[in-house]
Design a protein around this nucleic acid. Structure first.
Length: 477
RNA sequence: GGCGCCGUACCCAAGUGGUAAGGGAGCAGUCUGCAAAACUGCGAUGCAGCGGUUCGAACCCGCUCGGCGCCUCCA
C-alpha cells in the first residue's frame, strides 16, 4: 500500500487510483526559454522516480509532463536574440532532453505543448465565461476568483489575506486583484491565435488545465510540481478546472522541495543557480558517472524537504557510490566457494522488503537507499565467507532491479580514481594486466624495488592496485 | 500583515508516542614486504532551549531562540 503526502489535505494518505491498476499523473514541466538548473533537475527526477516506482508496483502510468512554449519570458528572449519564439522554444526543448537524458530522466509518456492546445484552451475559457466565472475586458479574459467559492483550498489562503499582501501594481480593469488572465490580447509582433476575443495567446495557468483534462480526463490521480507552484499556479488550475467541469480535478497533489545554495533558495534573481549542463561540463568525471552522482545526491534527501547543493555533497555521493560499485566489481570476480550462499536469499528478501516499505511510505528514497546500503554490508560479509557464481549474479541483479527504480546501479563500468582514469582510457587492459603480472613476479622474487616502481607507474595513470593476501592483485581506475 | 516549512552526531540525512536508520569524514583492527585499496568494528543516554501532557516524547501542546520559503515570474 502506497501512502503519499497530499498537499491538498495536508496529510499522508493511502493512494488509491481512480481506475484500478492505472495511474494518471500530470507534472508541470518547464517554460522553455533557458537552460535547466539543478532545481529543475530535482523536480524532474523526483517525479521520474515516483513514476518508476508506481510502474514497479504494477501500475500502468499515464504520465503527462508539459512544455510551456508560449509565455512572456519566451517572447522577451526571442526579441533579445532577434530570433523567433519557435527557435527559442525548439532550442531549449532540445536542451531539456539533452540535460535530462544525462540525468537518466525518462521522457514522460505524453509531453504536450501549450501551442498545440490552443483550441482546448479557447474552449475551456469560453466555458468559464458561460458559467460566469470569467469575464472579458477588451481583448483579455480574466478568471474571477471571487466567484469561485473554494479559492485558496490548496494553498490554504484566504482571499482577504492575499489582498492584504498584494504588493504588485494591480490592473485597474480587474474586478479583484487576484483575478488572473486566461487569455491575453496580442501586441504587435507577438505570437497570436484567433479567438472569440480577438487575436491573442493563453495565460499561463490555463494551459495546464486544458492539457491535463485533454490527456488525462477531467478528474485524474496525481498532479505534481515544485513547491513554488502551489500558489498561484496550482491554485488557479484548480479554480479553472473545477469551475469549468464541476468535478474534482487532481485528487493527490505532490510538491517537491527546493534546491538551495547555502540555505537559500536557488533562483535566477539571486544569481545562485547552477545549470545542469554547467555541472556536467565542469565535472572531472565521465558523463554517465556524473549523472549517477547527481542522481544519488538528489535522491539522498526526501523529496519534500529542502536540499542544499554543494561540491562537498556531490563528493559524498561519489564516495558512497564508490563503495557500491567496488562491491559490484568484486561480485563479478570468480566464485570463491558457497558458504555465503545460504545467507544470500534472506539478505535479498530483507532488502526488498525494506526497500518497498520505504518507497511505499511517501517515496522515501533516502531510506530506500539505506536499505541498499544495508545489502552492501550484508554482501561484503557473505563475500568473505565465499559466494558461488550464481549467488554473485543474483546479488548484482538485485541491485540492478531495485536500483532501476531509482535509476541507479545500472552502469557496467565505474571510475574510482579521477587521476588520469577520469578521462579517456589510455593504457589498455591487456597492458595493465601484463604489468601487474610482471609485478606479481617481482614480488615473488622479493624484488620490491621493481614491484614498487610498477605500482607507481600505474598509479600515475590513475590505476589503483589492491594486493590480495594470496599475492595476486586486482586493479581498478 | 497573512500562510507555511525547518533546526537530529564533525558534515549530510531518516525517524511524527515505545526507547536514535543510512552515508561521508575520523579512529581502531584485518590484510600486507611496505603502501594503497578494500573490508570489519567503533561513534548521539540524546534529537535548538525552556516548560507541560503521558507509564513513556526527537516525535503531542505552549513559549523562546535561530534559519528559510510563499503571498509577484519561479521546479
Amino acid at each position: 500500500m502506497i501512502k503519499l503526502y497530499n498537499t491538498l489535505t495536508g496529510k499522508k494518505e493511502e493512494f488509491v487510483p481512480l481506475v484500478p491498476k492505472t495511474v494518471r499523473m500530470y507534472v508541470c514541466g518547464v517554460t522553455v526559454y533557458d537552460y535547466c538548473h539543478i532545481g529543475h533537475a530535482r523536480s524532474a527526477l523526483v517525479f521520474d522516480v515516483i513514476r518508476r516506482y508506481l510502474e514497479y508496483s504494477g501500475y500502468r502510468v499515464e504520465f503527462a509532463k508539459n512544455f510551456t512554449d508560449v509565455d512572456d519570458k519566451i517572447i522577451k528572449r526571442a526579441n533579445e536574440q532577434g530570433v523567433s519564439c519557435d527557435e527559442v522554444t525548439a532550442k531549449f526543448i532540445q536542451a531539456y532532453y539533452d540535460d535530462m537524458g544525462k540525468l537518466g530522466v525518462r521522457p514522460a509518456s505524453i509531453e504536450p505543448k501549450a501551442t498545440e492546445h490552443i483550441a482546448d484552451i479557447v474552449q475551456l475559457t469560453e466555458t468559464l465565461i458561460v458559467k460566469g466565472l470569467a469575464y472579458q475586458v477588451d481583448g483579455d479574459v480574466y478568471f474571477e476568483v471571487a466567484k469561485y467559492g473554494d479559492y485558496g483550498r490548496l494553498s490554504k489562503r484566504k482571499l482577504d489575506d492575499l489582498q492584504a499582501g498584494a504588493r504588485v501594481d494591480v490592473d485597474e480593469r480587474k474586478r479583484h486583484p487576484m483575478d488572473f488572465a486566461l487569455w491575453k490580447s496580442a501586441k504587435p509582433g507577438e505570437p497570436a491565435w484567433p479567438s472569440p476575443w480577438g487575436q491573442g495567446r493563453p495565460g499561463w495557468h490555463i494551459e495546464c488545465s486544458a492539457m491535463s483534462i485533454r490527456h488525462l480526463g477531467e478528474t485524474f490521480d496525481i498532479h505534481g510540481g515544485g513547491m513554488d507552484l502551489i500558489f498561484p499556479h496550482h491554485e488557479n488550475e484548480i479554480a479553472q478546472s473545477c469551475g469549468a467541469t464541476g468535478k474534482e480535478f487532481a485528487r493527490y497533489w505532490i510538491h517537491n522541495g527546493f534546491v538551495q545554495i547555502n540555505q537559500e533558495k536557488m533562483s535566477k534573481s539571486l544569481g545562485n543557480f547552477f545549470t545542469i549542463r554547467e555541472i556536467f561540463e565542469k565535472s572531472e568525471w565521465p558523463e554517465e558517472i556524473t549523472g549517477e552522482m547527481l542522481r544519488y545526491f538528489l535522491l539522498s534527501t526526501h523529496y519534500h524537504g529542502p536540499l542544499d547543493f554543494s561540491d562537498l555533497a556531490i563528493r559524498e555521493a561519489k564516495q558512497a557510490l564508490n563503495g557500491l560499485y567496488d562491491l559490484f566489481a568484486r561480485l563479478a570476480e570468480p566464485a570463491s566457494g558457497t558458504k555465503g550462499d545460504a545467507g544470500l536469499s534472506m539478505a535479498l528478501e530483507r532488502t526488498q522488503t525494506a526497500f518497498r516499505a520505504a518507497m511505499d511510505d511517501d517515496f522515501n528514497t533516502p531510506v530506500a537507499i539505506a536499505a541498499l546500503q544495508g545489502l552492501r554490508s550484508d554482501l561484503n560479509k557473505l563475500l568473505a565467507d565465499g559466494l558461488s557464481l550464481e549467488a554473485r549474479r543474483g546479488a548484482r541483479e538485485a541491485f540492478r532491479s531495485l536500483g532501476q527504480v531509482l535509476g541507479l546501479f545500472q552502469l557496467d563500468r565505474w571510475i574510482f580514481n579521477v587521476e588520469g582514469g577520469g578521462s579517456a582510457s589510455r593504457t589498455s587492459e591487456a597492458e595493465i594486466e601484463r604489468q601487474i603480472a610482471e609485478r606479481t613476479e617481482a614480488k615473488k622474487r622479493k624484488d620490491f624495488t621493481r614491484a614498487d616502481a610498477i605500482r607507481a607507474e600505474l598509479a600515475a595513470q590513475g590505476i589503483i592496485i589492491e594486493d590480495r593476501p594470496d599475492g595476486t592483485s586486482r586493479w581498478k581506475r
